[in-house]
Design a protein around this nucleic acid. Sequence first.
DNA 1: CGTTGGATTGGCT
DNA 2: GCCAATCCAACGC
Length: 210
Amino acid sequence: MAAHLPRTFYARPAPAVAPDLLGHVLVRSRPDGSRLRARIVEVEAYEPYDRASHAFGGSTARNAVMFGPPGRLYVYFVYGMHHCMNVVTGPPGHGSAVLLRAAEPLEGLEDMARRRGQVAVRELCRGPGRWAEAFDADRTLNGADLVAGPDVWIERGRAPTDLLATVRIGVTRDAERRWRFVEEGSRWASGPVRLSVSRPARRARSRSSG
DNA sequence: CGTTGGATTGGCT
DNA sequence: GCCAATCCAACGC
């Protein structure tokens, strides 16, 4: 099997780990022996001195995993109905993490689609809430070890040719930090994948139905 | 294809 | 009480 990313990979600041995660593959082993696999194309970094982070203000019952050792999964519940998956980074006690926002589904697509409902393959893991649902991730997965645990891990994948750093999505405080990292041009991402929106090449007169 | 608002729980002030 | 690291359907053009 492909090599897991080692603990040292995660033991760095979130804004350093985040872009390095692009291209690697999140794997979840299912009880029946099958696997879910998806290639990471979009992530966001959160640091404890950053008011957008759950860790801002210190450790609580909800965010305690963020303050534990790096290389664990931090799963939280939001908006009363969605879960989001994060990778804990930095030295123990630091309180930083990388939000997993979007991925290209590689294996177990039928399993994902069963939970996601009748949606296009493109929609299976495009967005943190969608990806968590596709991977059947809830708070029972909170704290799972990605390095030594048997259930979920990250293996090496093909690095992107180019990546883009933009502002984070849905963030209102400390919103100016460009800590969202996305594989440039990826059709699997949940937000902008280009620096500027290019004007549609509309020659002469446009046709009625475009 | 863009924008808008509702859903619905729980964490923290 | 307030509002959130979101998603989706409904609308208007």
